[in-house]
Design a protein around this nucleic acid. Structure first.
Lengths: 100, 100
DNA sequence: AAACTATATCATAATATAATTATATTATTA
DNA sequence: TAATAATATAATTATATTATGATATAGTTT
């Protein structure tokens, strides 16, 4: 698959409120699904499916520890990406306020 | 609207191959729709709708010049964002190759 | 002003994504 | 080994997104 379209896949993976929130949580370090479940506040099954999508995009990795499964970000560049997104958000919001 | 969910909106806007490509083109400077139409190679109507979505997200701005309409990125941070996405893409792809 | 060009909008059909419910898997503990 | 806990998967329904084709608008040229 072309690098370009993988980038699109990553944007799509982040383009959902639950998944975006999960990634934000994971910038603080690994979390087990049960913790995420509490934090994100969604049905277990639904959360699991969102985690799969993040995993398929390569954004997160999981690791077993007994009964629990811990998820973490696959690389530090992902935290940097969130920062970059927020800077763009700030300027886009400004743009919309001034012009319309 | 919360800043967080606007970030999600921006990710969603970028999470489509045509829109991602448009934004990439615009990093080189303003383009008129007709040029984009040639570059992106999609139906005029469809392109126009994608441009609207990018505009609603605040990522692009349009300007009339006679019959033509030129689109441009609203801020330089957007080019930086593309760079950041590509760095993440590179490491996500690496992750998937090594682990599975 | 009629014809034309560039772009946008609208309605709709096709397709993809999301949430829900039920069930399965895997590890742990009694 | 039966019961339980944590997580994943599957099937289904609900909802959102996308592409298409037709039509509208706005500026330009003849």
């Amino acid at each position: 698959m072309k690098m370009d379209s993988w980038s699109v896949k990553i944007c799509k993976a982040l383009g959902h409120p639950v998944r975006y929130t999960i990634v934000q949580y994971l910038t603080d370090g690994p979390r087990c699904v049960c913790e995420l479940n509490d934090d994100v506040g969604f049905s277990q099954s639904n959360l699991s499916q969102h985690l799969r999508i993040l995993k398929e995009a390569g954004l997160v990795r999981s690791e077993k520890d007994g009964l629990k499964i811990f998820y973490q970000l696959t690389c530090p560049e992902i935290s940097a990406l969130l920062g970059s997104i927020e800077r763009v958000t700030a300027c886009c919001l400004k743009e919309l306020q001034t012009n319309d």
